[in-house]
Simulated scan of single mutants.
Amino acid sequence: MTPVALHTVFETLAYAAGFRTFLWTRQRLAPSAFNDKDEVAWIAVGAIVGAALGAKLSYWLDDPLTAFQNFPDWRHLLQGKSIIGALLGGLLGVELCKRITGIGQSTGDAFVLPLTVGMCIGRIGCYLAGLDDHTYGIPTSLPWGVDFGDGIMRHPTQLYEILFLLVQYACIHARRNAFAQPGDRFRAFMIGYLGFRLLVEFIKPVFYAYPGHLSGLQLLCVAGLLYYHRDIPRIANVLLKGSSSAWVPR
Results as ranks from 00 to 15, higher is better:
residue 38 D to E: 15
residue 121 I to R: 05
residue 37 K to R: 15
residue 79 Q to P: 04
residue 87 L to M: 07
residue 107 T to P: 06
residue 103 I to T: 02
residue 78 L to D: 05
residue 96 L to A: 14
residue 94 V to C: 02
residue 93 G to K: 07
residue 96 L to N: 10
residue 99 R to S: 13
residue 119 M to T: 04
residue 90 G to T: 01
residue 106 S to D: 12
residue 87 L to Q: 00
residue 106 S to Q: 14
residue 86 A to G: 05
residue 90 G to R: 07
residue 113 L to M: 02
residue 36 D to V: 13
residue 83 I to K: 02
residue 128 L to C: 04
residue 125 G to V: 05
residue 108 G to S: 07
residue 49 V to R: 09
residue 56 K to W: 08
residue 128 L to Y: 02
residue 38 D to Y: 13
residue 43 I to A: 06
residue 83 I to A: 00
residue 116 T to S: 07
residue 53 L to G: 13
residue 122 G to K: 00
residue 101 T to H: 15
residue 55 A to H: 00
residue 92 L to I: 14
residue 89 G to A: 01
residue 92 L to E: 07
residue 123 R to K: 05
residue 96 L to Y: 11
residue 57 L to N: 09
residue 100 I to F: 11
residue 71 F to H: 13
residue 128 L to D: 06
residue 125 G to M: 05
residue 42 W to T: 12
residue 80 G to L: 03
residue 102 G to K: 13
residue 55 A to K: 04
residue 80 G to D: 03
residue 121 I to S: 09
residue 62 D to A: 09
residue 45 V to Q: 04
residue 63 D to H: 08
residue 89 G to Q: 03
residue 100 I to H: 12
residue 114 P to F: 02
residue 52 A to W: 07
residue 36 D to P: 10
residue 45 V to R: 06
residue 74 W to F: 15
residue 32 S to T: 13
residue 74 W to Y: 13
residue 64 P to N: 06
residue 35 N to L: 14
residue 122 G to C: 08
residue 34 F to T: 08
residue 83 I to P: 01
residue 101 T to Q: 15
residue 43 I to P: 01
residue 37 K to C: 13
residue 59 Y to V: 00
residue 121 I to A: 04
residue 51 A to Y: 00
residue 71 F to M: 15
residue 122 G to P: 05
residue 44 A to C: 13
residue 77 L to P: 11
residue 52 A to L: 15
residue 124 I to D: 00
residue 101 T to G: 01
residue 89 G to F: 05
residue 72 P to T: 10
residue 90 G to D: 08
residue 87 L to K: 00
residue 56 K to H: 08
residue 115 L to Y: 05
residue 94 V to S: 01
residue 94 V to I: 09
residue 64 P to I: 09
